[in-house]
Amino acid sequence: MPARDPIDAYVSELRSELRVPRWRRRRIVLEVRAHLLDAAEAERAAGVDAGVAAERALARFGFASEHAAQFNRVPRTRSVLLRRTLVPWLAAGVLTSMATATVWAFRPATPATHREALHAAIQHSPRRSVHAAGHAATPGTSPTRRAGAP
């Protein structure tokens, strides 16, 4: 089984120890790999064997676990922070507005409509008919006859 390229192995170790968003992890890995390849090429240009060149480049670069720990402590950029705080608030505002508009569109009948419906119900209620009948049975008490009229 061929030995794994030491730079590939180092980059894999670094990747596994990073606790950052995927896009940041990809960027870090690409940057580090480019640096190590440049450093190894400089060693080879000085006449060093490829394997030794890679090992020297890695030795100068430092431990993957230590660098990963430093990367994991880097604060997020202001733009990312802004996106992660502003977007949820905007989304909540939009959803609330949509919900309010929906509820308002399907709201129950207005108070004026209610009053009309109630008035119509009273006009046709049995209790009003009995009241009108009671007035007609009592002489001189017809609701349509004015006091003093012939």
């Binding site: 100068r60 670069f61 430092g62 431990f63 660098h67 430093q70 990367f71 880097v74 202001r78």
Partner: peptide
């Protein structure tokens, strides 16, 4: 210094604007 220490520093400086 260990060359790898440059990159977290660069990311931190960029994060700070």
């Amino acid at each position: 210094l260990a060359e790898g220490t440059i990159y977290p520093a660069l990311h931190r400086l960029e994060s700070a604007g």
